[in-house]
């Protein structure tokens, strides 16, 4: 993974995220939607670990934090990521630095430490279980 490859990846992902959010708010007003895009849910009928995060992000943007937490707590992480990552990458590109790339490498080293990895997997699985229980 090189710096430019990573930055392209993240930029495309953020753009997709914003486009998706824009589309969702638009279709909410028009009362029409393409429905769910989650392949996991389409094939297994069970919600995936991140199902409900669009609704969660939209709820956060409307200021309804408790509803957002109910839909999917990961939405908070996504809002922070969607807000910070593009700004950080634009700053890096403009100043020709690679601070985000260094952070990414550190993060990859940090997350594969056993206690951290196991607790994160446990959190994701618990959240997933909750998703299935809520039948999102």
């Amino acid at each position: 993974m090189t710096r430019n490859k990573l930055y392209t990846f993240i930029s495309v992902l953020s753009l997709l995220g914003y486009a998706w959010l824009g589309y969702q708010t638009y279709s909410e007003k028009q009362n029409s939607s393409i429905g769910q895009v989650c392949m996991f849910k389409a094939t297994t009928t069970l919600p995936c670990p991140s199902c409900g995060s669009t609704r969660s992000v939209l709820a956060i943007l409307q200021g309804d934090l408790s509803q957002a937490f109910y839909f999917n707590p990961l939405g908070f992480l996504l809002v922070v990521g969607l807000f910070i990552l593009p700004l950080w990458i634009i700053r890096d590109v403009v100043l020709k630095k690679k601070s985000f790339f260094k952070f990414y490498l550190l993060f990859e080293k940090w997350i594969v430490k056993k206690p951290i990895m196991i607790s994160l997997i446990a959190i994701i699985l618990l959240n997933w279980g909750w998703n299935v229980y809520k039948d999102l």
């Binding site: 990846f9 895009v37 392949m39 996991f40 991140s50 199902c51 996504l78 990859e108």
Partner: peptide, 26 residues
């Protein structure tokens, strides 16, 4: 869609990204 493929080849960071965004919105 859960990013397991990225985790397996060692792209942990991208794997997390893929997991949290439901496979990058599919």
């Amino acid at each position: 869609g859960l990013g397991i493929d990225r985790f397996m080849i060692g792209d942990t960071g991208l794997g997390v990204g893929k997991l949290l965004t439901c496979g990058g919105f599919g």
